[in-house]
């Protein structure tokens, strides 16, 4: 009894410490935030007897007291751009990308842990609850090693900035001065919370203590998300500056500097992207462990782990293109020219590569789900229909990756009769591409629905009606998506973008309504046979590795696109890049650089996985009993 009370006190103290750590940066910042930057500047000016100088915010168009120096006008020399005998931009690109890969991984994994631990707490089935708990513990163990590496890479990144771009870094850190130390203190809070969360796992495994532990994961993720939002405000400021006048002088309102035109779209897009990326990396880890497994029991465990990670990753991948559309819409609203550079100008071919990668992600996901049906009896009934899904995916994919115009020789141009192919040219416009990607996503939803009912037969009295309704709903959804895509050809381009909204609504209707209907139909369903975890082809695991690699590559690509759209500006229209590397790289060089980054990340993350495998200790030992091994056991849920 005394031990239990002791544990409770320990847990509550730990949680209070975390909340304290979370509030620490705010408390430390209160004096400067309460006094306000403007007052400082105003007081300083009054003391000198000067007239207070005011400036006009370049974005918000409000007036503010000038509280900072103008953006430095750099020159191509060792003063502003000290260098090694190598392109500084490439070194910075490498350091930045590696830090970002690891940063997004260690921010995503605790969110997974929170979701999986919560599933374990609310699950009625004790054996399944322990399996979820074990899985969450496995996840956090992986991220702990990666966390140290993230901090090291962050240090390398800062040194790279200070050494190679001192003028730029000095200006940016000056603008964000009121929140720079908050960012640093957030790291203290994040580290403290993560270590208490990880090392407290054993002591807080039951009842009330488990809820305290779960609350810690919420605190951990709040800190992690705030950290990311602050980091996003820097890149938001570089793309769409606000809170400064046209000379780049800070006007005293830090909220304007943080809350730029692109900040919130970037926040949403990055949260979803991090989650999908984290899911992909963990799924690849599980696939690697599955392929290396010696026993059926291990194979079953890692098969299940791979499935859960993939399902969580794809759950965030599905809304990701829509968040991307919002981001692009805001880019166009902020500066139309910037949008045109991205989608129809200098960087347009990179978007074709992006479309190719998105297609690969969805194709890999579908392929994995079709293979995964092999681990359940009763799913054979869907096998003969898969070829139709392949046809739909292939059609959607081909439309999605068709470029608007090709780079051609005069002879080729003449042979084709113009810049655009007479038939295929029609598929190179956004109207067709919106239709293509929505068909792909809807097909992925359909694959998921089939997978979820693979080994079950509905026993509800309206099962026949439910099945027919589901078929009709998907059929009408496909028709509606294609109808709206065709409609787009009959209206001007500037209003055509409005058609993407009902298309997205159609896809999301399929996602939410059909998942809900399927859940109702499968309540108390008859099981045709158990899910035989571990009984899956090796090909499926390579699909998971493909999924993760494609994701890593695409993150590198999109980071490059987002960065290079600033062209020759460090801070768009405020601080010019006068280094010898202000030009935009060729597509080929960029692709090679992205590939090198991906390769380096995967080599190092394999090292992290190997380090994690050295600590073979598994906390809830009893959970092993719940993992179905060579003898198939009924899995009560997905």
């Amino acid at each position: 009894m005394g031990l239990l009370v002791g544990k409770r006190i320990f847990s509550i103290v730990a949680l209070c410490m975390m909340v304290g750590l979370l509030l620490l940066p705010v408390v430390v910042a209160l004096p400067s935030l309460a006094i306000g930057e403007e007052t400082h500047a105003g007081d300083a000016a009054k003391k000198d007897g000067d007239k207070v100088e005011k400036g006009r915010d370049v974005y918000y168009k409000t007036e503010g007291i000038v509280s900072g120096a103008p953006a430095p006008k750099t020159t191509d020399g060792v003063k502003d751009y000290p260098r090694y005998n190598f392109e500084s931009r490439v070194l910075l690109w490498f350091a930045n990308q590696q830090h970002l890969y690891y940063g997004s991984f260690v921010l995503a994994v605790p969110i997974f842990c929170m979701i999986i631990e919560f599933m374990g707490v609310v699950t009625k089935d004790k054996a399944l609850a322990k399996r979820y708990d074990q899985l969450a513990y496995d996840f956090i163990k992986i991220s702990l090693t990666a966390y140290s590496l993230t901090a090291i890479l962050g240090g390398i990144l800062i040194f790279t900035f200070l050494t190679l771009y001192p003028a730029f870094f000095s200006y940016l850190s000056g603008i964000f001065r009121p929140v720079m130390h908050i960012y640093a203190l957030m790291f203290v809070a994040e580290s403290g919370t993560l270590y208490i969360y990880y090392y407290g796992w054993d002591k807080m495994r039951e009842g009330f203590l488990k809820w305290i532990h779960l609350s810690m994961s919420v605190v951990l993720n709040v800190i992690g998300t705030l950290l990311m939002f602050l980091a996003n405000s820097w890149i938001g400021f570089m793309m769409s500056p606000a809170g400064v006048d046209e000379q780049g002088r800070y006007l005293g309102n830090i909220w304007h500097v943080i809350h730029t035109a692109l900040w919130n779209p970037l926040n949403l897009h990055r949260i979803l992207g991090n989650m999908a990326f984290g899911g992909g990396v963990v799924a690849a880890y599980a696939a690697y462990k599955f392929l290396a497994s010696k026993t059926d029991e291990d194979r079953a465990h890692y098969d299940w782990m791979g499935y859960i990670a993939m399902a969580l990753g794809v759950a965030f991948l599905i809304p990701l293109p829509f968040a991307g559309y919002w981001l692009m819409r805001e880019v166009y609203a902020y500066r139309q020219q910037m949008g045109i550079t991205l989608m129809g100008g200098l960087l347009a071919w990179l978007f074709i590569i992006q479309a190719t990668m998105i297609g690969i992600l969805f194709l890999s996901t579908n392929y994995y789900l079709w293979q995964a049906m092999g681990r359940m009896r009763g799913a054979e009934k869907y096998q003969r229909y898969i070829k139709y899904l392949v046809f739909l995916l292939a059609c959607g994919y081909m439309v999605f990756i068709t470029p608007h115009t090709m780079v051609m020789t005069p002879a080729e141009l003449k042979a084709m009769g113009g810049q655009q192919h007479p038939v295929l040219g029609n598929y190179g416009v956004m109207s067709a591409k919106n239709g293509g990607i929505n068909v792909i996503i809807t097909t992925t939803v359909l694959s998921f629905v089939w997978y979820m009912r693979g080994n079950k037969v509905s026993t509800v009295s309206w099962a026949k009606f439910g099945n027919i309704f589901m078929g009709v709903f998907f059929g009408c959804a496909y028709f509606n998506i294609i109808f709206l895509a065709v409609y787009g050809y009959y209206i001007p381009a500037n209003v055509r973008v409005g058609l993407s909204v009902p298309q997205v609504a159609t896809t999301l209707s399929c996602l939410f309504f059909m998942f809900a209907l399927n859940s109702f139909m499968m309540k108390g369903a008859k099981q045709m046979g158990p899910i035989e975890w571990g009984k899956i082809s090796a090909r499926s695991q390579y699909a998971l590795i493909m999924l993760a690699t494609a994701f890593t590559w695409m993150m590198g690509l999109m980071g490059y696109i987002r960065s290079s759209v600033r062209l020759f500006w460090h801070v768009n229209e405020i601080m010019r890049d006068n280094s010898p590397w202000a030009y935009t790289h060729t597509v080929g060089f960029a692709a090679n650089m992205i590939s090198a980054n991906v390769l380096f990340f995967w080599i190092t993350i394999l090292f992290v996985f190997w380090l994690g495998s050295l600590t073979a200790k598994k906390v809830p030992v009893e959970s092993k009993a719940g993992i179905p091994g060579s003898v198939p056991q009924p899995a009560p849920s997905h």
Partner: peptide
């Protein structure tokens, strides 16, 4: 409920509900 399980009736009812839903959604959002 048994009438709804008749394939023809199920198909007609499903089509009415689904087509009606998508027309309303498209109409409203456009």
């Amino acid at each position: 409920m048994s009438a709804l399980n008749n394939p023809v009736i199920a198909l007609v009812v499903s089509l009415i509900i689904t087509v009606g839903y998508f027309v309303l959604v498209d109409h409203y959002l456009m």
